[in-house]
């Protein structure tokens, strides 16, 4: 219990540091936002007035704490480009990216565990090498290229969906989910290949342990040795990897959203970076960073729950 409290304290400090760094990063960016807002021909007086209106003339740390206090109340500031609260711009895009990430994670989970067990149980050397080579091929394809291939094959040739014609979840939940299947799979495939490789190695290692030999000598079937004895132990390293995956999937969705023109926060992030709309970019980066920190924290806790040996230490 004391350990968990200490971890929570560390979590809060990490979140604080991450938000500070993300905030500072967007403060040192060259390029004055007032140029963007007023144009290059604005008078110095008008600029100074706007700077004080936006609070840009205050010290960086004061601005950080003012911003942080706002964030904790759910106020992420106001967009420079659209003059509306950042949160209003994010709120309808976050669920979409969340859905894409969740779907993709689900696919990775559902595909990689059975395939990993299968790969770990192959006994023929040639078949094992073939499987490993195939795995390596899938791992080498960048998700956005898989996305483009999927657009071409399933969208343009087989006409299973129309790429670019995104269905909003406000119009149709099922239509939206169906549209997201291909982007989610594009992210999930290389991730699955990586997880399968990890799980295959872990299962191989477990199958050489003494407790498996004992299980075998007691007459347990091979399926029981694999699924009942080896798999739970082999899954422990996979848990940590899955947390990393969840973070990677979220960022991969930024790229995939471009391929499938899904109006999620990835597209908003890229647009706001090229528009120099820093309050928006900053909010998204901080949210993504906080997400990653939280996922890693959850993985750490899960890891301890899954493996009592770590808890005892």
């Amino acid at each position: 219990m004391k350990q968990i409290l200490r971890k929570i304290a560390a979590l809060i400090i990490t979140l604080f540091l991450v938000s500070l760094l993300a905030f500072l990063a967007f403060q040192v960016i060259p390029g004055d936002p007032t140029t963007k807002l007023l144009g290059t021909e604005a008078t110095p007086e008008a600029r100074a007035a706007l700077r004080s209106q936006l609070g840009l003339d205050r010290p960086v740390l004061a601005r950080y704490f003012a911003w942080l206090a706002g964030v904790l109340r759910g106020d992420f500031g106001e967009s420079y480009s659209y003059h509306m609260p950042v949160w209003d711009m994010l709120s309808d895009k976050l669920p979409l990216t969340g859905l894409l990430t969740g779907l993709s994670f689900l696919f990775t989970l559902l595909l990689s565990i059975p395939l990993g067990v299968l790969a770990g149980s192959i006994r023929s050397r040639a078949l094992d090498n073939l499987f490993a080579a195939l795995d390596q091929v899938v791992m080498s394809v960048p998700p956005f290229f898989i996305g483009m291939l999927a657009c071409w094959l399933f969208g343009l040739v087989l006409r299973l969906f129309s790429p670019g014609a995104f269905v909003s979840y406000e119009d149709s939940w099922t239509g939206c989910l169906a549209y997201l299947v291909f982007p989610a799979l594009s992210i999930a495939l290389p991730r699955t290949a990586m997880t399968v490789k990890l799980l295959r190695g872990a299962i191989r290692q477990e199958m050489e342990q003494d407790y498996i030999r004992t299980a075998r000598s007691r007459g347990g079937s091979r399926a029981r040795q694999l699924l009942w004895h080896a798999l739970p132990n082999a899954l422990i390293p996979v848990i940590t990897f899955m947390a990393v995956s969840l973070a990677e999937i979220m960022t991969a969705s930024i790229i995939i959203e471009q391929v499938f023109t899904v109006p999620g926060i990835g597209r908003l992030l890229l647009a706001s970076i090229s528009n120099r709309d820093f309050p928006v970019a900053q909010a998204i980066v901080v949210l993504l960073a906080a997400w990653i920190v939280l996922v890693n924290f959850a993985a750490d806790l899960l890891y301890q729950l899954a493996d009592p040996r770590i808890r005892l230490r």
């Binding site: 990063a25 967007f26 960022t251 930024i254 960073a289």
Partner: peptide, 15 residues
């Protein structure tokens, strides 16, 4: 290393 490279690269490139 806890953060995906693309996210950090986005921040660095915007600098």
């Amino acid at each position: 290393t806890a953060f995906p490279a693309i996210l950090l690269a986005l921040v660095v490139v915007s600098l």
